[in-house]
Simulated scan of single mutants.
Amino acid sequence: MAQLERFAEFRAPTGGDDDVDAVAARMRALGAGWPPRDGVAVFNRVYLSVTEEVGRRLDGGAFPDARAALTLAVRFAERYLAAVEAATAGHRPPACWRPLFQYRRHPGVSPLQFALAGINAHIGHDLALALVDSCRTLGCEPADLEDGFDRVGDVLASLEERIREELMPGPDLLQVGDPLTHLAGSWSLERARDGAWASARALWALRELPAVAEEFVERLDGAVGLVGRILLTPLPD
């Protein structure tokens, strides 16, 4: 799959990261170098919380197949870290991530928008590719990773609710027709997860048709990037 291989070029050298603690440490190091209001920093804090929670659940035995869950979590994180590495080096990250890097310092974009745009890119695009990466690493089928996929998704769902509570202005400041309320309510983590699962299964089925798979990934990347650009629409004060 040429497109999958091309995207793998964005993956930063990991030095053999094979556990959640290693990728979490990299996220902490990145966050320490960015201003708190920076849009990528906002998402990085959110994702670090997810990664730490997955690590705690792995340590606590919450995943029946710990090796599969660990592989998926690390491959998933590497996709985000690769996008950061590409942007930092002056290269073009996947289209799904470009809006967040382009608007990261825009004063008219709220922290909630930054967080949702990052989650959209990571779930809508990266999760499907990470699942395929994991299947190749483990020598299994997507169906074999469904339990781990669902359990990691449950962590994301619980944190998404907290993110909305923490980053959304208080109800006294919002009205039904408020643009931020509209934008925040127009994106669904559940639908994004469903789409990622369907995309991963499609890519796996297309693994013997590299030209079709390449086009599929390219279209997926562009579609997720378009949603991200909409989520980052600058809003009036």
Results as ranks from 00 to 15, higher is better:
2 A>Q: 14
6 R>T: 15
6 R>G: 03
9 E>W: 11
10 F>Q: 06
23 V>Q: 12
24 A>Y: 07
24 A>T: 09
27 M>I: 14
27 M>A: 14
28 R>A: 15
29 A>F: 03
31 G>E: 08
31 G>T: 09
32 A>Q: 14
33 G>L: 09
34 W>N: 03
34 W>T: 07
34 W>C: 06
35 P>A: 08
36 P>M: 07
36 P>H: 07
38 D>Y: 12
38 D>Q: 12
43 F>R: 03
47 Y>A: 03
47 Y>W: 06
47 Y>I: 05
48 L>C: 04
49 S>W: 00
51 T>P: 02
51 T>C: 10
53 E>N: 05
55 G>I: 02
55 G>Y: 03
56 R>D: 11
57 R>Y: 04
57 R>T: 00
59 D>E: 10
62 A>S: 08
64 P>H: 05
65 D>S: 01
68 A>I: 07
69 A>P: 05
69 A>Y: 05
74 V>R: 06
77 A>D: 12
77 A>C: 12
79 R>Q: 12
79 R>A: 10
81 L>W: 09
81 L>G: 11
89 A>T: 12
90 G>N: 11
95 A>C: 09
100 L>C: 14
101 F>T: 15
103 Y>D: 13
104 R>N: 11
106 H>L: 11
106 H>F: 10
106 H>C: 13
109 V>H: 13
109 V>T: 14
110 S>I: 01
112 L>V: 03
115 A>F: 04
116 L>M: 09
116 L>N: 00
118 G>S: 08
121 A>H: 08
121 A>K: 06
122 H>C: 09
122 H>Q: 12
123 I>R: 02
124 G>Y: 05
129 L>G: 06
131 L>V: 09
132 V>P: 00
134 S>W: 04
135 C>A: 07
135 C>F: 02
136 R>W: 08
136 R>Q: 13
137 T>N: 02
138 L>F: 13
138 L>P: 10
138 L>M: 14
138 L>K: 11
141 E>A: 11
143 A>T: 07
147 D>H: 07
149 F>P: 01
151 R>S: 03
152 V>D: 01
152 V>S: 01
152 V>R: 03
152 V>L: 15
154 D>L: 12
156 L>E: 01
156 L>R: 01
156 L>W: 06
158 S>K: 10
158 S>G: 13
158 S>H: 09
159 L>V: 01
159 L>T: 00
159 L>S: 01
161 E>H: 04
162 R>L: 14
162 R>F: 05
165 E>H: 15
168 M>G: 01
170 G>S: 10
171 P>E: 14
172 D>N: 12
173 L>W: 06
173 L>F: 08
174 L>Y: 04
175 Q>K: 07
183 L>V: 06
184 A>K: 00
186 S>D: 04
187 W>I: 07
188 S>C: 02
192 A>D: 05
192 A>E: 03
194 D>L: 10
196 A>D: 02
196 A>M: 04
197 W>F: 06
199 S>V: 04
201 R>Q: 15
204 W>Y: 14
206 L>D: 04
207 R>S: 11
208 E>M: 07
210 P>D: 12
211 A>S: 10
212 V>I: 15
214 E>S: 14
214 E>V: 01
218 E>G: 11
227 V>K: 07
229 R>T: 08
231 L>N: 03
232 L>W: 06
232 L>E: 04
236 P>H: 13
